[in-house]
């Protein structure tokens, strides 16, 4: 997997289950960032020219290549809008999340 996914983390109930000192498995994600979003980026694949600008500039790395198409990991996208703002074709629309 090229990006980590949320793990089912259960807080240890005995001290011996704790990590020895502050060190833990790299890339262990216990929760998502989806709740931060008020707008979600939606890619229009018809106008997208697959220039990869959005992939390059996403601060969270949540845009990825999916068999020649741009895809978004909505578990971790924060909705900053950088991708949409930088897209030369306006192929990404920031759509208000339904709360």
């Amino acid at each position: 997997m090229s990006r980590p996914v949320k793990q089912n983390f259960i807080r240890p109930t005995h001290i011996e289950g704790f990590p020895v000192g502050p060190q833990f498995t790299a890339g262990h994600l216990a929760d998502t960032n989806a709740g931060w979003r008020t707008f979600r980026p939606v890619v229009n694949h018809d106008t997208c020219i697959y220039c990869l600008r959005c992939y390059l500039v996403c601060p969270d790395g949540t845009i990825f290549k999916d068999n020649g198409k741009i895809a978004v990991d909505y578990d971790y996208c924060k909705g900053c809008g950088v991708c949409a703002h930088e897209c030369p074709k306006n192929a990404i629309e920031m759509v208000k999340e339904q709360l």
Partner: peptide, 19 residues
Amino acid sequence: TDQEFFYGHKACAGCGGSL
């Protein structure tokens, strides 16, 4: 590389440092 090494972090949305 497709691999992401800094992922799921809690930087503010749009953080330049995290990019």
